[in-house]
Structures are given as structure tokens and as C-alpha cells.
Design a protein around this nucleic acid. Sequence first.
DNA 1: GGCCCCAGAGTAAACGATTACATTCCGCCG
DNA 2: CGGCGGAATGTAATCGTTTACTCTGGGGCC
Lengths: 350, 350
Amino acid sequence: MPGPRPVSRPTLEAVAARAGVSRATASRVVNGGAGVRGPLAERVRKAVEELGYVPNQAARTLVTRRNEAIAVVVAEPEARFFADPFFARQVRGISRELTAHDNQLVLLLTGGESDHERVGRYLAGGHVDGALIFSLHADDPLTGLAGQAGVPVVVGGRPTWQDHDQGRRTLYVDCDNRGGARDAVRHLLGLGRRRIAHIAGPLDQPASVDRLNGFRDVLPEGGGTLIAEGDFTAEGGARAMAALLERSPDLDAVFIASDLMASGALHMLRTAGRRIPQDVAVVGFDDMISVAEWTDPPLTTVHQDIEEMGRLMARLLLRTLEPPAPAGAPAVPALASIVTPTRLVVRASA
Amino acid sequence: MPGPRPVSRPTLEAVAARAGVSRATASRVVNGGAGVRGPLAERVRKAVEELGYVPNQAARTLVTRRNEAIAVVVAEPEARFFADPFFARQVRGISRELTAHDNQLVLLLTGGESDHERVGRYLAGGHVDGALIFSLHADDPLTGLAGQAGVPVVVGGRPTWQDHDQGRRTLYVDCDNRGGARDAVRHLLGLGRRRIAHIAGPLDQPASVDRLNGFRDVLPEGGGTLIAEGDFTAEGGARAMAALLERSPDLDAVFIASDLMASGALHMLRTAGRRIPQDVAVVGFDDMISVAEWTDPPLTTVHQDIEEMGRLMARLLLRTLEPPAPAGAPAVPALASIVTPTRLVVRASA
DNA sequence: GGCCCCAGAGTAAACGATTACATTCCGCCG
DNA sequence: CGGCGGAATGTAATCGTTTACTCTGGGGCC
């Protein structure tokens, strides 16, 4: 037996009737009450209260063309992405910022190619005012889809195709991957290490490339046998570590492009009988506390403020949506992509 | 400079005009085309194609009172909940099921008390057709809010207040926590362990209580000094383990109510010089692969199919929303809460 | 004291779809 | 050959808001 059929919610009409005013006046009060005299406004507010009136968003959207909702689009060709705490945190920051501005968060998880069409349709359907896009790989068509649907976009992480016209224009928020990597490697040098290896993430992802470039900024000669490519999983980290140990048994430090890979690598190093940090010093990247603090030993790593990045993405997008400033207004700073700083957190592994 | 102002999307009116039919006919074709003759329908479809028409959801919702959207409400008084891979997986299952039925997922993260009012307003506003609610604690008013807003609800995990009238009626999806716990403890018994301890989750959460009850089903005498309460974090697991070791230094096995706590406990056991599983056998709960497979040694644990649970939640809710079957139709099975089975996965720790 | 003007309130026209109901058309049966 | 019925199509009401525009009344200025 289905529950009680939801009683039809009161409409603005009902509120107006109860307060003895016109629908227009009631509407004005509900939306801030500018231009309505005190006592009248009060009557309307009372009626709203008594009836438990809540505006019907569909009707409102229909006329204002505003949804007060933004989409978070997540490409997850591999299962990993969404389960990644990295992403979860970022969504949390986004949610905070959005609800602070009374916007809703619509989550779009896309699996394969077929889903892209669905997402495109959805964005084009005008369900949301803007989109925050996370895609793992270089060739992801999602951003293009959104753009051509006329939906403003901010992407998470630097896009690869900055050389395109569209790429250059695309707003993004990223952390200072390259600078963070430099700090990590300098720290290892400071500890007196001289055979420093690197486990990179998949090199079709800009973050991986940037971290690798940071490594090379400090160690231009560090090449070939001291670099291995992982896949941002613990298992991949272990495999890469094994490969490095075989090729360069004398390495005395590793900078690893993610904490998760680092946890796998630590595992492998222990298995190979290396003591950490005495024999091999290890530095990770991300500062995923649930990982970094609980490895054995606790991981020295490059911290990035993930939640803040999410917040910034949302803020940037919302600003994009604001109506262009009136002529006389104080000039707002132009909208631009954001790169947040990183910070080395020293624990026991290096 | 803002991008190109989004060109106004074509309306159904435009499609109708181009196809040379009335709006009504065009609408019928767009919604499945029942009762429209072949050639006409074809003309309409062509017009849709050429104009790139996408129905305006707001207008549609206004008249049908259907949103094709459901809310996922997550109480996260502590930061932990959302970052928990457990939850992420469940959302993934939900998303799969929803998009398979062309429904959208609206994510509502609620922080403190103040947020509850916001969520209540949102649900009452008729933005969504139903809600999936995850709350950590017993006294969470979210379910009540939704119910009183007339929005159908399915909750994740058994609610505590099953004794209430409302509680009994509330639909939920949970895994067989109690049975899983029994299997875990029986496994330890089978290994010849006799001093078996338990680290429980916070006992204001039903899942924790059920797992504890499963433990007691098998070991009714297992009491006092062999039970400690954790908080589902690795750190809390470590603390609880330390307490147990102090109170009962002779314990030879632990069943721990979550993998994350287990990882902390393993850490503590090693620190205390215990070999695993020789000195102390350890069984976890959840089978969070990213945790359980990478502990040292890999963790024996109780597997639950989290993604499937998410899928089931969504399916159950969608079924609730279906119009009541017409009189003559084959009787559909009554809607009921679901308890999914668990399965012991044996790795190296026990 | 008359006028102008403006702020405050009301009227009504959108917004873009769905759908009950009216109309038309056609084939078929008696 | 006329009328009947049902399927295909069109007409128009409706959903609940916002907002441009009109109307009203009263205060300030000359």
C-alpha cells in the first residue's frame, strides 16, 4: 500500500489570498521584499509561515531560466576515480561552496562512450546553470560537449590541450604539481640522497606530467633507469617499485607521484628487505591522511588542500554566472584559472 | 569577456512548425510516439534532429509533477563519512541504477543542524521525486523531515527506531551484518582460537550493534574485557587494540567491525610485537579492497557487495514511485526492505 | 491649491511543456 | 449509400512563477 498521497503544496496564489494581496506582491516579498511596505510584507511573511509555502522551483526556473543548480561531471572509465578519496574531498568542498550560495549539486557519473551522449543531452537540456568537470584523460570530449551546449564550465586539474584555442580559454583549478614535486626532490637532496628515483602517474594525465617535470627541474640528468610509470593504484606502485629496484638496486630515495602508489611501493621495499628511511627514503604526493599517516612508516608527502580546490572551483564557476557588471561598477578582476600552493609534510619516511 | 550568450534553445513549438503539425502531435512523438501515424512521426523526428531540440525539463516538470530526479542525502556531521570509500561505492551503484532509468542524482551533503532545515525545505520544494538517506546516527531527524514533506524515502542501513510506527514502515537496504559477524567468529574458532576479542564500531550505529550481536551469537560468554569500542577510523582501531592488549594480553584473535579500524589495529599489534596471524589472528569487516588487500599481512574480512546495495536502494525507491498497478494487473510483490548476504574472504591475517 | 512625479500595489502576459477534450477523417457494415 | 465508430490530429486549458506595464494615491513644489 503506497503511503499517503502527498498533499498538494500551497501555491503562491494561496499565500497571496491569505495575506490579502496580489500574487505579484507576494512574489516580491518571497524574493527579498524590495519595494513592499513593511506591514504588508509582514502579512505576507506570516501567510508563508502558516501555510508552509515553498516556491515551486520548476515554475520559477521556467520563467527565470535559472536553475540554481550546477552539475558535477565525473568521467570514471575506470572504477577507481570515484572511489578515490581525492575526488570525494573535492566534492565536499564544492558542496560547501554551492550550498552557501543556495545552489544544488547534481552529480553526473559517466561510464563509457555511450554515456557522453547522455551527458551532452542533459547539459543541453538546460537543467543546470553550469558544470564542473573532472576527466582523467587528455582526449576526453566532455568539456567540448558542455561548451557547445552553451553551459559555462570549470574543470578540475589543468587540461592538456592548452594549445588549442578552446583549451586556453577553459577555466581550471589545479594545485602546483610542479612546484610541489620540486620541493619533494629538494628535500631528498637535502637529506644527502644522490640516487633519487621517481614513480610517475600515467603520463597521459597532466598532473603526472607536471610532477615529473618538477622532478626533472631539480634533477635534469635524472633519466632512464630511475623513472618508472605507475597508474595511481597501490598495486601499480608496487610493480613500478619492483621494476626500479631491479634496474637500479643502488637507489637511495624515491619520489612517488601519489600516496596510494607510495603505500604499494613501501610494501614492495619492505619485501625486498630495504629499511625505510635508512636504506631508501620515500616521499609521496597528495597527503591523503588516511593513507599517509597509516603507512609503515608514516609517509613524508606533498600536501595539497583538496577541499579548498573544490571550493575554489565552485566559486569560480558561480562568478562566471553572475550577470556582467553594470557599466559604472568597480571593475571586477577578470576571471582566471587558479593554481593553489602545495606544502611538504615531513613524517618518518624521508 | 563572457562566452557567447547561449542561443535560446528551440522549443516544441518550433519543432511542430517545422514538421507542419500541432504542438500536441509533436509532444506525442517526443514522448514515445504512441498514436501517431508513421510518416507524420517521421517528419517530427526529422525536425527534432535538425533543430537539435531538447525538451525543457522545467516546463515538463511543471505539468507532470515528475522530476526524474532523486536526492541522495548524506549526513556528515563528521568529515569522515563522505570521504569513506564505502559510501562512494554505494553512490556509484545508485548512480548506475538511476541513469539506467533516466533519473538524475542530486547530492545533498548536510553538515550541522542548521542544514537540516535547508534540506527539509529542499525536499518539500518538490525538486525531487524521492530521497535516499544515509545517516550515521540514531537520532537523525532527516528521515522524519522527508516523510513529512511527502517524499518517498529509502534509507541506507537498518534504522534504529524500528519499534516506532514510522520506523517499522521505513524501507531500508542493509547487508547481513549479524550473519557476517557470525561467520567471521566461527572462522576464528575453526582455526582453534579460544581468546577471541572484538573491536566494535560506535554503538549508536545499528551496523555496529548488529555486528556485535553476531559476535555474541557465537560467543555468548565473550564479554567485558574482550570487547572494545572503536569509531570506524584507523586511529580509533589502534587505540581500541591497545586497550584490549592491556586488559587481555593473552588474546589470540580479534574480530574487528571494519577494515579501516583493522588496519590501525594491525599496526598496533605489530608495534606490540605480535606476529599475525601466528600470535593473533585478525578478521575485518567490509572488504574494502584498497584497504584489506594492502594491509600487512593482507586482511581476512567479511565481504559485502556495497555497489549492489546502492543499486538495490535506487531500485526499491524507483519502484515505490511507480503508479499503483491497475486493478487487473498481475499482483506485484509488496515492497519490502532488503538484507543482502555477506561472504567471508580469507586472506593471510586469519 | 493644482500639478507632477514617484513609490507601492495590481493586472496580465509570458515561460514551454502535457493532456483532456473536441474535431476530423476514414473505412466498414448494414 | 448513409451513418457509425474509432483512430489520428488539433485546440486550448493548465501547471506556478516572475515581471513589464498600468493604475492609484499622496506628498512636495511652485
